[in-house]
Amino acid sequence: MFAELLQYMLSGLTIGAIYALAGLGFSIIYNASHVINFAQGEFIMVGGMASATLTASGVPLPLAILIGCGGAMLVGVLVAKFAVERARNASTVTLIIITIGASIFLRGVAELIWGKDFKRLDAFSGETPIQILGASMQPQSLWVVGTAGVLIVAIGLFFNKTLTGKAILATSHNRLAAQLVGIDVKRVVLASFALSAALGAIGGAVVAPITFSYTEMGIMLGLKGFTAAVLGGLGHGPGAVAGGLIVGVAEALGAGYISSAYKDAVAFVIILAVLLFMPNGLFGKRGTERV
């Protein structure tokens, strides 16, 4: 009984960690530019595909991840520069469609480069399951959770300790004021896209051994990441992380105890329920609208 629960919790935390990273990516970009970047899932895909295909062709794993990460950052900056920045004053819906267009475009390019089939990436440290109190866990899960943890802490430090981080935060609080005190807002937006892309790509690389990589892997992961970000309150970093973990665990429990077919619905039922009572998510701040 307990072993079963533990098993579900472990699966949930593993996938939740990826949702958390994706959610954090959404939040960072939203903070800097008020754009919901539906291409976030594609960053994950780029990371997963690049590391899987590069290692398969003999590149050492860390280097492969690094290259994938760099590639995703480049893509992120390009999306920001050529699509989002130009449509600066467009409406919310228009911006959403631009990022959706970007995600379709990126999937198309990825399909051309890497093909349509599934890629396999070997687990980083073997596949011998670890037994914990009757539940078994893949070593890769530890990698996923550990990497996500390290990244989340690093992001926290980045925003609170470094000048660039503080500049991004300042921009999110008040764009105009930030501009007035000499922050290059455009570069902040670019930096936020690069940062989100890096987070996504690393997430994609560590999760690839569990889920396989394929060009459509980012779609559902991206949507769940969005759910995580909204659940935690858009633009609230720690909230997005908490949201990701909640969604992941709830999904695994739902699959185990309710119905595996409704696994994907769990996240959306939660988000609807939360939004009914907390229109700004769990940790979001209440906003007033300027006329």
Binding site: A83, I97, I98, I100, G101, A102, S103, I104, F105, L106, R107, G108, V109, E111, L112
Partner: peptide, 11 residues
Amino acid sequence: YQQIVLGGILM
């Protein structure tokens, strides 16, 4: 090239 063209047109 279908997806690339479609995505490109949208953007």
